[in-house]
Simulated scan of single mutants.
Amino acid sequence: MRKIGLLKSELYINIIKVIAWLFLLTYVPFMFVIPWFYGDWNYVHGVWHSWQSLNVGILAFLATVIALYVSRYQSIEHTKREFEGEKAFLPHALGELCKYLNSSALVLISVLPPVRGNMSSNLNIECPILPLEQFTVFKNCIKFAEPAVAKYLVNLLKLLQIHHSRLESICTQNYANAPYARSCLYNAAEIQALINELYDFARSEADFKAVELDWEMIRVAYRNLGVIYENIESLERYSREQLSK
């Protein structure tokens, strides 16, 4: 709803901008330039006096447009300040998510070696707790962020919740097979890679840049998670296949 409201606001502002320029391109030449070609100062003064009501209206319209742009500028600056304030908490939130992902990876690694494609039972695994309190930081950042940043954060949260739901199915149902656990492990690496690419922006050390994940990013993410992907059957092949989709 907020995005739709912003799009409508931008549309109205653009319409007003076009109308204002049309008025200026028509008004200025005919009111201030052309009259000088038809007479002296008295003639020009007479034109201005005859069109006094129009002149007052145009000035009022220009004052309104200027006020609109001043208000819009102040609103944009306010939003930027709010976002910078919320972004200050983002590095800590990302750090907490990294701890959660590391715990998730430990669970999945413990599942994979003994499974090797067979169903496992009675795993008795304790599921890591998703740090829901950090979601408030993401929510506030999304509220004030530019569309590209907001979209990135929304996608990150979506992947995180999907990952947690799948991890819970392993922990609570005492069920796992190698392909499923391998898929969950890749999801964890995918989220970790997105977090890695966001860190510099969160620390205000670089501008935001949307990225398309590649194998090098995923490889580094596995290392961050303590996953030795070479020791897990088909994990590298599966990861490369997912990236190519």
Rank of each mutant, 00 (worst) to 15 (best):
I66P: 13
F144C: 11
R81S: 09
T136A: 11
N42V: 13
L132Y: 09
N140S: 08
G117H: 03
L167I: 01
K87F: 00
A181D: 01
R81I: 06
W215Y: 13
K143I: 07
E197L: 13
V65M: 07
V18L: 15
Y38Q: 05
K209G: 06
N118H: 01
A178F: 06
E233P: 00
R237L: 12
V220N: 10
Y43W: 08
I16N: 11
V107N: 00
L108T: 02
V70I: 14
I58R: 05
F83S: 07
S244E: 13
S239C: 09
V220M: 08
N155F: 08
A202T: 03
A189L: 14
N14A: 14
L194A: 05
F144Q: 13
L11N: 14
I142Y: 00
D200G: 03
I15H: 15
A88M: 08
L54Q: 11
L112A: 00
F208W: 04
H92C: 10
A145M: 02
Q52N: 07
N177D: 14
V211R: 12
A105H: 03
C141R: 03
I191R: 02
S50D: 15
M31Y: 10
I19M: 11
C141D: 03
N122D: 13
Q161R: 10
L68G: 06
E216V: 15
L11R: 14
K143T: 09
I142H: 04
N118Y: 03
F138N: 02
V44F: 08
I15D: 15
K99G: 10
A202D: 02
G117T: 02
L243T: 05
V44I: 08
I16D: 12
N231R: 13
A63V: 13
V227P: 04
K158G: 13
R81T: 07
V56Y: 08
R72H: 07
I191F: 01
L94Q: 04
G226D: 02
D207V: 01
Y186K: 04
Y38M: 03
K80Q: 12
I218F: 04
V18E: 15
S103L: 10
S9A: 14
L25Y: 05
Y12K: 15
R182E: 09
P179F: 13
K80V: 10
Y175H: 04
S239Q: 09
I109S: 06
Q74C: 11
A67W: 06
S50N: 15
V47D: 01
S183R: 09
L68C: 08
P113T: 08
E126S: 09
P91D: 03
S120T: 06
S53H: 10
I218A: 05
V154N: 12
L194T: 05
L54F: 15
L22M: 13
L157G: 15
Y73D: 12
W41Y: 11
S244N: 14
F135G: 06
P128A: 01
Q161W: 04
R203Y: 00
V149G: 02
L225M: 05
I16S: 14
A210H: 10
W41P: 04
N196T: 13
Q192I: 09
A93N: 02
R166G: 00
N177P: 00
W21R: 07
L24M: 09
C98F: 00
F135L: 10
A189I: 12
K158F: 11
P113H: 13
E236H: 11
